[in-house]
Structure formats: C-alpha cells, structure tokens
Simulated assay, not measured.
Amino acid sequence: MIAPPALPDLLLDPIVRLALSEDLGRAGDLTTDATIAPGTRIEAHIAARKPGRLAGMDAAAYALKLIDASVELDQHLGDGAELSPGSKIATLSGSARSILMAERTMLNFIGRLSGVATLTARFVAEIAHTNATIVCTRKTTPGHRAVEKRAVRCGGGTSHRYGLDDAILIKDNHIAACGSITEALKRAHAYAGHLRMIEIEVDNLDQLEEALPLKPHAVLLDNMDNETLRRAVSMIDGVCKAEASGGVNLDTVKGIAETGVDYISVGALTHSASNLDVGLDLP
C-alpha cells in the first residue's frame, strides 16, 4: 500500500517533545550518563518481534532528531509495510549516548502506532470483498490524535472527523437538546454553508424516515442489527452515505459490511489496539 505522507514537524513537535520530556524528566538519562563514555559510537537495529503493519516512523525519526540530529537513521521499511518477526525496520549509527537516550521514546511510538495500523489492517481485510470503508473515530489517546489517525491510514483505513471543527455530526444528545431530528437538521443546514458535511445519528428506521427528506449528507446508523441495516440501506437508496457504528468488532464487521453500508466506524482501532512488539538491538 501507499503510506500517507509523514506528518509535518509542526504537528509532530508538541507530541514528541512531551514524550521525550516525560522520559528525561529533570536530570536526563542517568543510566547512560553513568555507564557510557562520551564519544562512544554504536550501530543498532530496530526490528519487529511480532507480525504486523508498520506505523509511527515519522514520530520516531523526529524523536531521534530532537535528541541528536547527527545520528544517522537508515530506514529499511516505510510506514504501511508488512512486518514479520525479525523484520529489520531501521539502522541507527552514531553516538551511543544519543541512541540509548532516544530508544524508548522511538520504540513507544513505533509499537503503539504499529499496533493501531495492524488492527486496522485486520478489519480492512475482513471486508475487502465489499465496497465498505473502515473509519476511525475521535476515541483517541488525548494529545495523540494526529499520529493515531495517521496510523489508521497506514493500516488501510481512513478517518471520520478529526475533531469537532471539521464536520457537523448530530448525535442523540444534540437531537434531545434541540427537540427533534427535523429541527436539528434544519438548523444545521442553515448554519453549515456549502462546504461542511452534515451527518445525523439515528437509532431506528422511524428516525431514518424522518431524517431522509431533510437531505443530510450521511446518516449514522447506530447499534442496528444486520437485518435493520439492510432495510436502512434500502431506504437510503443512494440518497446519502450510510455509516454503521456501535460495538463493531472483528467477528461482526464482515456481516455489517455485507449489508451494503458505505462506511463502518470502529472506535476500537484507536482505543483498544494492542502494542506491536518491536525492539532495538546492538549486533
């Protein structure tokens, strides 16, 4: 697959600086300072210990750059690459003190984000025979949304909203506070302008029937069983996009995709992905 571009340094910088700062604390790397003589040079390899999908190399490379831009990073595999146990991801050459200082933060980013990409790839594979697309949600680690959503893309998925400011998604609480689906959609259309998408969440077919004449761009079909999803897709009949959500997992996603929905949102991609085991080793 073609991996998404690396995130701009402007976005990576606060995320990576915070990670390095919480590791280095107030006194730096005491172990390295105590045991490694200045001027010592090494070569080290980052390698996968479990199979998966690679992500997070942009954040890892930026962490190394902030510690010591003179350390050479020779990247053998790019984000989006398939990993097998033992796959050599990158070679680092330079100051031993700098490499050891950056090691854990680099591996944390690669392990966490490769875990997200790996889980996403599993969901994508389950529905590859359909026209549905796997999308992630805003259920991300606070402060890490940009890197986690990019990791989803490395796994072959894409994103729902990045934040509250890039689309209008009318959920059940908005409807309750506003008074009705009809009133919520009328207000949204009056406010949105021509470039903002409007999606509305519905829990049943009666709500869907009320929403469709008001022309949302997409309808979020929440916690519906597969038969209800099929009926909903038939009712929508291409008038807008159909998105399924609610407790989606690897056991259920295939059946959901086969109902004909356009998108399936999966919060688990970012809130429940397991860390992929990667390590840094000296030859």
Rank of each mutant, 00 (worst) to 15 (best):
A257N: 07
R150E: 02
R112I: 07
I2L: 14
D237L: 09
K254G: 11
R138L: 05
A117F: 01
A177Y: 13
R138I: 08
S180T: 10
L119V: 00
S93T: 12
D29L: 06
G255F: 09
G86N: 05
V261H: 07
H45T: 15
A121E: 12
N223Q: 05
Y62G: 02
M197E: 15
P142N: 05
T32R: 11
E258N: 10
A37K: 10
I99D: 09
G80S: 01
H76V: 01
F123Q: 07
I89G: 05
L54G: 12
A3I: 01
A190Q: 14
E209G: 12
D9F: 05
K254F: 08
D74N: 14
L229C: 10
A151S: 00
A19W: 05
D13M: 02
D225S: 09
E72Q: 14
L64H: 09
G94T: 00
A102E: 08
V71L: 08
P51K: 12
N131C: 10
D58W: 00
P8G: 04
A273Y: 01
I175G: 11
P38S: 04
A44C: 11
L205I: 07
M57H: 06
Y162H: 14
T140F: 06
F123T: 01
E227H: 14
A190E: 14
V202M: 13
T130H: 11
G247T: 03
I134E: 06
L185P: 11
M1E: 13
V202I: 09
A37W: 03
K149V: 00
M101L: 13
I134R: 02
I264Q: 06
D277P: 07
L64Q: 12
T130V: 03
T137V: 06
T118W: 04
L169W: 02
